[in-house]
Design a binder for these strands. Structure first.
Lengths: 355, 355
DNA sequence: GTCTCCTGTGTAATCGATTGCAGTGAAATT
DNA sequence: AATTTCACTGCAATCGATTACACAGGAGAC
């Protein structure tokens, strides 16, 4: 077996082919090769054919480092998310990756571990790597500010989903307030006259906006929302379980529990089940994001569907636009708030008219 | 408001600082600056201080493109997975990202969409980008072969979790056969005397190995496994539901359903619930991977825990070793099979001795 | 028949960091 | 005192692709 291995398999790796080698084989200069391969500049059909042939024969591939140095463009985009294990961010990453792939760009993925310091380091690293632009969902509503702004001063930058105050960059996400309005309307229609809110600490825009939207609509509709029924922790199933247990054991369980994301909601429904509290009959529960597992909950979660594909597409488009504008003037920053859709499943009650 | 914006906020982006500017400011040559910043070569304390100072003042950051061109090393690793939305791969990605971060390396993430052609394109792109190494979990057990081998001929490459036949590269994963042995032993101890297997099409090593392990142990223990009870689809909740429905409606439901991953198992338990088949009393169900949502199933899934952190760490270590060996001789490829652990939850029965 | 203009091609500079080589002193050695 | 050694520092080449500029030669205009 070993005897049959080619020289290649035994050891030496393939040598990289440069433009100079292609030029030599085609009997032209490197300038001409570059012109043929990039399609810029006039080249006779005959030479074009020879160069293509030579490049194919040699298996030429551009050296992106050299090109990046010369063009100061890397065809690479950096993305920083608080936690890639949150399925919502996973979905965003997936969609951004696909959108970039369509333009021949590559994705540098960074996980900030919900820590603004790690986040700042990752951003700096991306800048040093000359990415063409950065897509970031900031971990913290204020602490992420300096690093995000400093980065935006050097590169096109788009904030996704969450945003940080005091910065002046493009943003794409959903209209959290409008979303919560739909949620509260739906719960109210299902008979809820009091509601709790379970979110993460108010240190990021998602929770802030969602809570604000919740409160505003609850007040408009006269849905009671006791301050003691606002529980803040983090975006996790565990926190959802803890919070729900606290609500149940504390007595005075409201008619509905509005959660700032699906992970929390999954934890809440789980705790309800464990405590023998029927959902939605005793308490209605809603999530946010519509992650894949939302429909797998027991009962399946009513939630807000985030249009991840569109969010990603818009973000990539904004970056491309910023890149095209060049390093020169930056216009007013774009704020694109998509209106999300309520997905009704089994964790909430049908409107009172039918029930 | 607009009037208060600094020149920076209004438009022009910060200019990149080069080593030459630092040199000028410190009154030394670029060579000296490079020596100070890289810590290589002798430099007097006084000059060292001046250079550091100048670099700080100017906010110097290396240009990775230039460094990559000169050093032909990018401090970047590429990773290709079949589907980033599968929580198991998400977890692998997260752990690889963290492991690389510790070494100051960055991660290029690519999603192959379970398509060998997309995968091949992504691999080629990573090669063109001069990544220092590639970590790949091949989408297909045979079709992924050519691209993976071609890539491995050019760069250090480690296969993760899955591997493709006919290639000669390092691999890290769990011992699927040993894992399945534990699963079958456990089910047998819980009283199972017949079992079905639900996996994906046998086009990747995970399913192949897991099925092989399942079958071998089932035969050893005399657990019946009707060929009609081997259902192959894909790694998804939907497929799990479909497969379970088929088993239930087909009659002759076995004592246990062994699933090739947790997503399938979640679908299976869901279908059982929907059809009123009690788990684990009528049928025991097992998963594989121990994704976060495994414990959230109803009932919580008994599954095999994949040591993602260790797998990732080993992969990164192997890459680093291959990189250190240089492009020269490649020794025999390493095959590291970690022994995973069975996590017993509520979807299987306690051993017969207690039940 | 001379003068433009245009197509097609090559030469060489450029991007920014790194490093082999050489040179300059000062300290150590004989 | 002559010579070796060594720490420090600068010059310039290098990595590979791109592109401004120059130039050759042919077509067309007058």
């Amino acid at each position: 077996m070993t005897g049959r291995l080619s020289a290649l398999q035994r050891g030496k790796r393939l040598q990289r082919v440069t433009i100079a080698q292609v030029a030599a084989r085609a009997g032209v200069s490197t300038a001409t090769v570059s012109r043929v391969l990039s399609g810029r500049g006039p080249v006779s059909a005959e030479v074009r054919r020879r160069v293509r042939r030579a490049a194919d024969d040699l298996g030429y591939q551009v050296n992106h480092a050299a090109r990046a140095l010369r063009n100061s463009r890397t065809d690479t985009v950096g993305m920083v998310v608080p936690s890639i294990t949150n399925p919502f961010f996973t979905s965003l990453v997936e969609n951004v990756e696909h959108a970039l792939g369509r333009e021949g760009k590559e994705l540098f993925l960074c996980d900030a571990r919900s820590d603004p310091e790690v986040e700042a380091r990752r951003l700096a690293s991306l800048v040093a790597r000359n990415v063409d632009g950065i897509i970031v969902s900031p971990s913290h509503g204020t602490d992420s500010g300096p690093a995000v702004q400093a980065t935006a001063d050097r590169l096109p930058l788009v904030q996704l989903d969450r945003f940080v105050g005091g910065t002046n960059t493009d943003w794409v996400g959903v209209d959290d307030v409008a979303a919560m309005r739909q949620v509260v309307d739906h719960l109210h229609a299902g008979g809820a006259r009091s509601a709790a809110f379970v979110g993460s600490h108010l240190t990021n825009s998602s929770t802030e906006q969602r809570f604000a939207g919740f409160r505003r609509r609850a007040e408009e509709l006269g849905v009671a929302h006791d301050p003691a029924h606002v529980l803040l922790g983090d975006y996790s199933v565990d926190w959802g379980e803890t919070a729900a247990a606290r609500l149940i054991e504390g007595g005075g369980l409201p008619d509905a529990i509005v959660c700032a994301d699906d992970l929390i909601a999954l934890g809440v429904t789980r705790a309800c089940r464990a405590h023998g509290v029927p959902v939605p009959d005793r308490v209605q529960v809603t999530g946010f994001d519509n992650i894949e597992f939302a429909r797998l909950g027991e009962p399946a979660l009513t939630t807000i569907d985030q249009p991840c594909a569109r969010i990603a597409a818009e973000a990539v488009r904004l970056l491309a636009a910023a890149g095209a504008r060049g390093d020169g003037e930056r216009g007013a920053s774009a704020h694109i708030a998509l209106v999300p859709e309520l997905v009704v499943r089994d964790s909430t009650r049908a409107p009172a008219t039918t029930g």
